[in-house]
Simulated scan of single mutants.
Amino acid sequence: MTVALLILGAYAIFMWLVFYKFRWLKFNIAWGVVSFWVGFHVLFLLVVFMRFYTPYTIDGHVIRQTIQIAPRLPHPTVLEEVFVAQNQKVKKGDKLYLFDKTLYEAQLKEAEANLASARQNALILQQDIVLAQEALQEAQANAQYATDQVNRYTDLVPRGGAKQETLDKWTSQQTSANAQVAEAEADLKKAQLAADAQYDGVNAEVASAQAQVDQARYYVDQTTILAPEDGVIISQQARPGLVVGGFRIGAIAAFVADADPYFLATFYQEHLKFVEPGQPVEVALDIYPGQIFAGKVKSIWEGTGQGQIVPHGRVPEFLFMSPQGRFAVEIDLDEDPALKRYPAGAHGAAAIYTGGGGDWVAVLRRVNMRLYAWVNFIVPFDV
C-alpha cells in the first residue's frame, strides 16, 4: 500500500510538471483520459509484479517452542516450595517446584517391603523343589522296598515259608507306596511350575513387586519438577499451598525453550506462486525500528486449518464467503540463526525476493521494507 501511494504521488508530480509547471503539453479532456489510463495500468502492473515477484506480509512472528509444566501426580498433593520466579532464566536440570513427598515415600517403602518379601518367596520356591525331590526319592525308596517284599513273599508263600497274611500286608503297602510316589511326583511338578512362573527370566512375583517399586520411585521423583532444558519460565502463577494431582490436567506454568526458535510469516496462497526454499528474504522487526535483517526461505508450510476436517458427528459446512487461509513460510535469519536476540512473539514484516520481474521490482520492495522499519520509530502513536 505504501509503495502504491508513492507511485501515485510520483506520477501526479510528473503530470503536474508536464501540464502545469513546464507546460510541455496542454491539458484537456483527451489528455486527462490518457493520463488516467496510463497511470492506472502502470500502477496496476507494478502492484501485480510486486505481489507475485516480491511477496510481502506484515504478519511475521518469532516462534519459540513451549513446554507446559504439568505435575504428574496421581493423588492430590500440596506444593511446598517454588524455586523459580516470573520470567527467570533456568538451565536444564534446575529445580522448579517441590511437592509434598510424604504419601509417595510411604508408598515406596511399602513397595520395597513387598519386593523383599517376593524375593524371599522366590527362594522358598527353590527350597520347595528340593523338599519335593527328597520326598519323591523317599516315596520311591519305600515303593521299591514294598515291591521287593511282595516279590519275596510271593515265592515263600507257595512253599509254606511264609503266611498269606504277610504277603497281603506287603501287597497293600506296595499299593500305598506307589500312591505316595504319584503324589510326590505331583508335588514336585507343582513346585517346579511355581518356580518357573517367570517374566523375562525373573520370578513373576518379584517382577511384579519390582514394577511397583519403580512406579512408586517414579512418583517420588515427580514430586520435584526440574527444568526440561535451557529456557525461561513464563506465566508462573503457582505458589506454595497449591494442590495438584488427582483430576487436575492443566499446566501450572509455561516454559519457553531457548533451543530451535524460528521466524514464521504468513502469505496469501497465490502470492507464493514463485517462492522456493533458499530465496533471499528481508525482515523488519518492530522491536528493532530502522533495522533490516537478511535471511532465506527455509520451507513453505503448504497447509492451513481449512484443509483439515476434524472427525465429529455433524456434516461439514463450507461457507462460500469465508476468508482463505494463509500459508506460513519459515525463514532463517542470517545474522542470528539461533534467534537469541528475539523474544517469542516478536512481530515484524517480511519480503521474499524471487528474482522475477526485474531488479526495479526488488528495489521498490526494498524501499517499502525500509519505510516500514523507519515508521516503527513513531508507530503506534501512543506518546
Rank of each mutant, 00 (worst) to 15 (best):
A146D: 15
R217Y: 05
A265D: 07
A85T: 06
Q68R: 07
F19P: 15
N142I: 02
R152P: 00
N28W: 07
A197Q: 13
D155K: 03
V33W: 00
Q133H: 08
Q174K: 10
A177N: 03
A135V: 02
V367A: 09
G39P: 10
V283K: 04
F99M: 04
A184P: 05
Q173F: 10
D334T: 15
Q149G: 06
Y97C: 01
S322C: 00
A197C: 00
G201R: 06
K26W: 02
S172R: 13
H75Y: 13
I234D: 07
G278I: 06
F377D: 09
G295H: 02
A191D: 11
K91C: 01
D332S: 12
T54F: 12
I352V: 15
Q308K: 13
T77E: 04
A85S: 09
I13H: 11
F44G: 10
A4E: 06
Q222G: 05
L17I: 12
A259S: 15
I378F: 15
K109P: 01
A238N: 09
A351C: 10
A139Y: 14
D334Q: 11
A227L: 07
Q86F: 08
V315E: 13
R23H: 11
Y262G: 01
E317F: 03
Q68T: 12
Q140M: 09
K109H: 07
V213L: 08
L8E: 09
Y342L: 13
Y262A: 05
Q120R: 12
V297Q: 04
K101R: 15
W31Y: 09
A182P: 05
A118M: 04
E110S: 12
A143Q: 14
A197K: 07
L333G: 03
Q212L: 10
Q279C: 07
R248T: 14
A111T: 13
N28H: 11
Y20F: 15
Y104V: 06
W374C: 00
N142C: 01
T304S: 13
A179N: 05
Q198K: 15
Q215I: 13
A106K: 14
R72Y: 08
T223L: 02
W24I: 03
L272T: 12
S235R: 02
Y11L: 12
V38M: 13
V367M: 10
G39A: 06
T154C: 00
Q236Y: 02
A211P: 06
I234H: 07
A209K: 07
I233N: 05
V3W: 05
K189I: 03
S176E: 13
G305R: 03
K273D: 13
N121A: 12
I69C: 03
A12Y: 12
A362Q: 11
E302W: 09
